[in-house]
C-alpha cells in the first residue's frame, strides 16, 4: 500500500470499495406491489444504500405510480439496520433473515 503524505486520500468517496453489505444479518426486501414511491426509505437510509431509479419496470399498487422513481436497495452496502423497514408508511419492506 502506498502511504500518502499527510495521509491524504486522493480519491473522494472511495469507501465504496468496502462492501459493508457483508455485515447484514437481516435483509430488507421491497415489495413493489405495495410501494407507493414516497422515498422515505431513501431519505433515511444511513449508509446510504438505497438509490432512486427512473423509468423502472417494477410493479406498483397503482398504474399512475409507475411513472415515479423507485427505491432500489444496493445490497453491496446495506447493513440491514432495518430503519427503512420501520419507517416505510405502508409496510412495503419485508425483513428476512439473511442466508449467506
Amino acid at each position: 500500500m502506498k502511504i500518502t503524505r499527510g495521509a491524504v486520500v486522493e480519491e473522494a468517496g472511495n469507501s465504496i470499495e468496502n462492501k459493508t453489505g457483508t455485515w447484514r444479518t437481516f435483509k430488507p426486501i421491497i415489495d413493489y406491489t405495495k410501494c407507493i414511491r414516497c422515498m422515505i426509505c431513501w431519505e433515511f437510509c444511513p449508509e446510504p444504500s438505497i438509490y432512486k431509479e427512473d423509468g423502472s419496470e417494477k410493479p406498483a399498487p397503482k398504474e399512475a405510480l409507475k411513472k415515479l422513481p423507485v427505491p432500489i436497495i444496493d445490497y453491496d452496502y446495506c447493513k440491514g439496520c432495518g430503519i427503512c423497514v420501520n419507517e416505510c408508511p405502508v409496510k412495503a419492506i419485508d425483513f428476512v433473515k439473511e442466508v449467506k
Binding site: G13, N14, S15, I16, E17, N18, K19, T20, W23, R24, E43, F44, C45, P46, E47, P48, S49, Y51, I72, D74, D76, Y77, K79, G80, C81, G82, I83
Partner: peptide, 26 residues
C-alpha cells in the same frame, strides 16, 4: 453513479447510526 449523495456508502459506522443521515442531508 447510482448513488449521488455527497456522502458515500462503505463507511464503518454501526448499522442504524443516525449520524450519517444527518450528514448526507446537510
Amino acid at each position: 453513479m447510482k448513488n449521488d449523495w455527497l456522502f458515500a456508502p462503505g463507511h464503518g459506522m454501526c448499522a442504524g447510526c443516525a449520524a450519517p443521515i444527518i450528514v448526507k442531508h446537510i
